[in-house]
Design a protein around this nucleic acid. Structure first.
Lengths: 145, 145
DNA sequence: GTTATAGGTTTACAATCGTAAACGATTAAA
DNA sequence: TTTAATCGTTTACGATTGTAAACCTATAAC
């Protein structure tokens, strides 16, 4: 089931609501997205329909309407997007990308602690040199021209 | 000039080549993307055209053809995508997102060092609690009935 | 000089995306 | 019970994306 799905920006707004409420009706979702994005209910309905179709939302009948639930959890969804970011850069640059994200993020002391631990973890499996997986011409690891 | 541009997946492939070669002809790019993606030259040409149109590639005449150069540098491009990722989650979750990326990345000892330093930096500006900027209903920071 | 070739520009075209109205069925209100 | 509000489904429609062929022009080869 996991795999090759993708969540567009607009669909993501819907998923966030469902992830948060855990279970929601189209009205629940529409109300929130009206507040946030001024989307007409019709717009939200379309997005819900597409997500159901894609198998990203499950439905459970509840009278004349549905309760929607996420078919993929939030971490999976986020991870999918993380992977997309990492897929855009050379493996060797990922460290720098992480540093860059860190730089532009506001972090709490707890976050710092969390990351320090995570980093500590990574030390065990750190390599001397990350392997570049790029084709020649898409990163400088390979000699160009 | 910086701002509201966006680079699609396919366009990104072109940008990576230009960022790498620093300057390239359409043939340079097409050859590389043929190797990597089996794209016909026509496809690459279309992408180049769109990027020029968007102002993401600059042209410099060179005989009967152009030398293309990136109008935004790689870091900017990557940062744009990072921002997009961060925009999808609650500010409070960014620490966890970073940890998650770290977890799925292969890092070198040097990367670890770099990140340790970056983290150290962040300590100075770390806050007690990150402010959630979400609307109610899109993250659990706000009480949801 | 005529022709083949390479490079840029135009046109194409289906799929996806963002945004929404219209429609039909059903339930709740009057 | 007639009506109004609600909910899901269908249809709409322009913009963007992925993928490419066709075309036109200027060089390069003969």
């Amino acid at each position: 089931m996991a795999g090759n799905f993708q969540i567009t920006d607009a669909e993501w707004e819907v998923m966030r609501v469902v992830w948060t409420l855990n279970q929601a009706t189209s009205k629940d979702i529409a109300d929130i997205l009206w507040t946030k994005k001024n989307w007409k209910q019709a717009t939200t309905k379309t997005l819900i329909g597409r997500l159901v179709h894609k198998g990203l939302l499950n439905t459970e009948k509840d009278g004349n309407r549905y309760q929607y639930r996420a078919a993929v959890n939030k971490s999976e969804g986020i991870k999918l997007f993380e992977t997309k970011l990492l897929g855009r850069v050379c493996n060797k640059d990922i460290g720098k990308v992480i540093a860059s994200i860190m730089a532009e993020a506001t972090l709490s002391h707890d976050d710092i602690t969390l990351l320090e631990e995570a980093l500590q973890e990574k030390k065990n499996e750190a390599v001397d040199e990350v392997r570049c997986g790029c084709v020649k011409g898409q990163c400088l690891c390979k000699t160009v021209n």
